[in-house]
Amino acid sequence: MSHRAKSELAWGWFFILPTIVGLVVLNIYPIFSTIFQSFHRTGDFGMNNVWIGLDNYKKALVDPKIQQSIWNTLKYMISEVPLSIAISLVLAVLLNKKIVGRSAYRMIFFLPMVAAPAAIAMVWKWLYNTDYGLINNVFNIRVSWYSDPNISLYSIAVIGIWSIIGYNLVLFLAGLQEVPRDYYEAATIDGASSTSQFFNITLPLISPTIYFVFVTRIIGAMQVFDSIFLVMDRTNPALNKVQSLVYLFYKYSFEEGNKGAGATIVVILLLITLIITVLQNIGQKRWVHYN
């Protein structure tokens, strides 16, 4: 081993050591610990756990609440992710032109990113209020936005979309700036309309950014918790049709102290996330263009 190689080995390990120790303690060990826990029934006061094999999973998979929460989570994901991406993509394309007030618009769209989720949830709950809410009173309707089981999930998704648009938009704008201007000039000379420019130049060239946002948003949406926890009261009749996997995880693990059941739910979440990630990875080859 050359002197240089020895030195790289020593420095390399020195530099990564804090991170590796941290990752092992905080993340790698917990993965195994959580999986291990999911094969146990939590004993009294969280002590004396009993090994029960796959019982937690058997119970979870026939538990109508958990079944419903898996469905709720997927439904939330399907309503939040594509819409938020489509809206922010359109806004990003509009903002990518030299127009007056460009940075003011961008500043406004990004604003929800710096507001505490609890504040966002509270004000939306207030806007949604059936009797006194701004939305019902302005449009003169009487919709129970978050207590009608048929629509409450979508009301929560609207909060999610509203909160995340600015974040997606900033990433899309960064992606759009990489697209060479002369592509558009050439297309304009050839007489391509702006719609066809959007589909034939813009979309393919920023598809890696779209893919990145898509993947991170899917993962984020699968973990939806804050808005549901904050908007849906424990007595809300629509709760069962809204509560997500992570919501149940929190409830079982920390409100009811049943860590075995909580661990089982997050392992299910982990498995679903892995399946979706693999599917996305296969799917991306069809539509993401790397140059």
Partner: peptide, 27 residues
């Protein structure tokens, strides 16, 4: 840098990024 164990250790970084954060919370 290039050193023994680098790729294996980097895979720990990637694993952390792929696993939902709630998996870590109970432990």
């Amino acid at each position: 840098l290039n050193f023994f164990g680098k790729n294996l250790m980097f895979s720990l970084v990637l694993i952390q990024m792929m696993v939902p954060a709630q998996v870590f919370i109970i432990p």
